[in-house]
């Protein structure tokens, strides 16, 4: 499981790999927060219930990351615990955990579908995600 920043002329891109779709969502979120230099603050943990449905796995990944970005902007919360999430086909549901957000240094405008293709690999699944910044 992991992620790595890859070169892109104008925007940001990461390569993410994991054993399964749940791991891929988790690592994608971690990679996204790394790119933004999100800085957590001390404070009580928070939980939110999440329920998303999409056309396919790629759309679900975009919807999930967009949801995290929205919560960071609207509620100033940084979600980083996805152990209670379950994914079945094109549906995602469960509880996500996080804490207060001190700041995000660099802005992501959107998670794009550009060449987004979740592929099977030796170790499970992999994908490249391009973020508009």
């Amino acid at each position: 499981m992991g992620y790595k920043e890859i070169s892109h002329t104008a925007d940001w891109s990461i390569h993410v790999w994991a054993e399964d779709i749940q791991g891929l969502l988790t690592e994608s979120a971690r990679g996204m927060w790394m790119l933004t230099s999100a800085d957590p603050a001390d404070g009580p943990r928070a939980e939110r219930e999440l329920s998303l449905e999409a056309y396919d796995a790629e759309s679900l990944l975009v919807a999930f990351l967009e949801e995290l970005l929205y919560l960071s902007e609207s509620e100033k919360l940084l979600f980083d615990d996805f152990s209670a999430l379950s994914v079945e086909g094109r549906k995602l549901s469960g509880i996500i955990g996080g804490g207060p957000l001190r700041s995000i240094e660099k802005e992501i405008k959107a998670v794009t579908f550009h060449n987004l293709d979740i592929r099977e690999s030796k170790g499970g699944l992999e994908v490249e995600i391009v973020f508009d910044v």
Binding site: E58, N115, L116
Partner: peptide, 19 residues
């Protein structure tokens, strides 16, 4: 962009990139 992922299927539009 999310909504139109379905629209391209409904209107049978073939594209080389989903974005």
């Amino acid at each position: 962009v999310r909504e139109f992922q379905g629209a391209v299927r409904r209107y049978n539009i073939q594209l080389p990139d989903r974005e």
